[in-house]
Design a protein around this nucleic acid. Structure first.
Length: 285
DNA sequence: GCCCAGGCCAAGC
DNA sequence: GCTTGGCATGGG
């Protein structure tokens, strides 16, 4: 398919390192002054400018400008007023004020359902650098290579090949042994294959993520949050549990207690609050 | 060799 | 309903 460069979007207040390297997405890479990734089959380039960042998209010529504009505004959560959201969270207490200040350039990405489902199945009992490697292996082997027509290049254009995230059908039909050899995803391979198959038979419905194999409470809540399905989701991992225990709950920091606290205390901003807290606690010191 | 990583599943109470 | 052990893999 022929790709062309078209759409361009400005994002005030946006910071690349905070948004792309905070554990919500695994395919963004920095090369020179530009961050890039493939999302929904399109190559996205983002560079920081004074006061925010700018996006350039390389997309299929058959996609209209309106389609691309809608996609980008959704993906980068442009419909959310982060100024007022951050002010509301910061007014809750001094901890949140600090967390919001620390991660003030974070934006929650509304990502593709299938990619998010599979990526967070892989994330279970795993660390972020290795999650990225496994996903990269997966895309190189089973994703469609995106060929850039002509001579799109320049000093800032990233080098290398670009692959879309695999289609569900490409993962549903392979053997566990092959997937394990290719990705080194270990025991998660069975979950990936089974969930890809289920994703097809459920017509892409992820409204109840726990129906999928390999998806428990934590992964389910990541899927709901990082696809933009439910911004009240409050994923509880070791870092969130730690920080909520330290600042709010003391010894009463069971996963269940932390989850209930987060949802109640932060209400409809719980997902955003969780991401500021996660980024802050995981990166400080 | 140990412990840990954006945990889940199945088995046993 | 809640608690426990096992689990593939690689980095520190």
């Amino acid at each position: 398919m022929a790709m062309k460069s078209e759409f361009f979007l400005k994002m005030p207040g946006f910071r690349c390192d905070q948004t792309f390297d905070c554990g919500q997405a695994f395919r963004w890479r920095q090369q020179g002054g530009v961050w890039h990734c493939v999302a929904s089959g399109k190559i996205l380039l983002v560079r920081e400018v004074s006061g925010g960042a700018e996006v350039t998209v390389f997309h299929d010529s058959s996609e209209s400008r309106e389609t691309i504009e809608l996609f980008l505004n959704n993906y980068f959560d442009m419909g959310t007023d982060y100024e007022s959201l951050m002010a509301e969270l910061a007014s809750k207490d001094r901890y949140m004020a600090e967390a919001v200040k620390y991660g003030s350039g974070i934006r929650l990405l509304r990502q593709d359902p299938f990619e998010t489902l599979i990526s967070f199945i892989i994330s279970a009992n795993n660390n972020i650098p290795r999650i990225k490697k496994i996903i990269e292996n997966l895309c190189r082997k089973y994703g469609a290579e995106i060929s850039l027509a002509g001579n799109i290049s320049g000093p800032d254009f990233p080098e290398g090949s670009f692959y879309a995230f695999p289609e569900p059908g490409a993962l549903a039909s392979i053997s566990e042994a092959e997937l394990s050899d290719v990705t080194h995803a270990g025991y998660r391979c069975a979950y990936i294959i089974n969930s890809a198959s289920q994703f097809i038979s459920r017509h892409g419905d992820i409204s109840v993520p726990e129906q999928y194999m390999g998806v428990g409470p934590k992964v389910a809540s990541c899927i709901s949050l990082f696809t933009g399905t439910d911004m009240k989701s409050f994923p509880v991992d070791v870092w969130v549990r730690r920080v909520i225990g330290e600042l709010y709950l003391g010894e009463n920091n069971s996963k269940k207690a932390v989850a209930e606290f987060g949802e109640k205390y932060f209400g409809n901003l719980a997902g955003y609050a969780q991401q500021y807290l996660f980024y802050w606690r995981r990166n400080e010191e």
